[in-house]
Write a protein that binds this DNA or RNA. Structure first.
Lengths: 165, 165
DNA sequence: GTTATTGCAAACCATTTGCAAGTGT
DNA sequence: ACACTTGCAAATGGTTTGCAATAAC
């Protein structure tokens, strides 16, 4: 129960999903396979609508209905492969909850750029906090808001620029 | 323009809201006052429904409609007094974005409960990371995912329960 | 008196669900 | 054959919005 297998990281998302389905007496259908493949084709965040669009542009496979995409997302969440991280434009936003190292984001509120940074120390602290609360930790998300160097540097000269208009 | 008034922290949420409304040519109605008072009556997280219930139990003031509560929440967000932090049971969850120290959340992915924890050390680390990237920091959000003690404990006996049916 | 605001009911829209037809094992 | 899945269309439910009546300034 407390083993830490080296394999852990080597199991691909699809494999982990298949495993999950098996233990639940569920099936890996072509539709589900399509969705999972698309979900893990990149490490981008996405909302159901985007996923549906992407899946529908795949030529290699049969069409997947909106309902099935929603249902598969739910399964992926249950399997610990996806995590709902936010809400944007009235839609739920998901990100990978597996196979990608924990990291934080510096998000520039001006230009929208995102800088990823590692946060090993923070992960350690989080583990401690979780333990204190008897919380069974699966992952976390750290977003830091502000302005990136580019967007905050020109500050002193901002007025010049504006005056040119 | 670069003054840093000591008053800053002393301004009450209601005052800050009034100020905001004034600059926008909006009015501080009795309804809005009710909602704001209720929002800042405690530091709990809440969703619109809970807020509506709470507001409606106030005897000291006139009834506030569901629409108005929603509209006021939007204003409070715009004014920088509230922040949407999560989604639980299909509802948006809000927390104070003003006059309350930075903290993290343990979010249970099963029951949706949220436990707040302080994170002074983490704030320090974030400041350092931001400095390293010449990032002008304004705030951050730390969400830790997993299962709360209640939701993870019964796991070992889950099967028994199911078999009873 | 104007102009913003409210409450109501209807509209919206992402997500969920019932069900009959279809598919994997 | 059997149980799980799918797609569709309808239902759900939180949130938003149009509008006439009402309140703030």
């Amino acid at each position: 129960m407390s083993e830490r297998l080296a394999v852990e990281v080597a199991v691909s998302p699809t494999e982990k999903f298949t495993e999950f389905l098996l233990t639940k007496g569920k099936r890996l259908t072509q539709e589900r396979k399509n969705v999972v493949d698309e979900v893990f084709a990149s490490h981008q965040h996405f909302d159901p609508d985007q996923l549906i669009n992407h899946v529908s542009t795949r030529k290699d496979a049969r069409r997947v209905s909106r309902s099935t995409v929603y249902r598969t997302i739910a399964l992926l969440e249950e399997a610990g492969l996806l995590r709902k991280v936010a809400r944007a434009n009235g839609r739920d936003v998901y990100e990978h909850d597996y196979g990608y190292p924990q990291h934080g984001h510096l998000i520039c509120q001006k230009c929208g750029s995102m800088i990823e940074f590692s946060e090993e120390t923070i992960s350690k602290i989080i583990e401690k906090v979780a333990a204190e609360h008897e919380f069974r930790l699966t992952g976390h998300r750290l977003e830091v808001y502000g302005n990136c160097s580019k967007c905050s540097r020109p500050m002193q000269r901002r007025h010049d620029k504006l005056n040119f208009i």
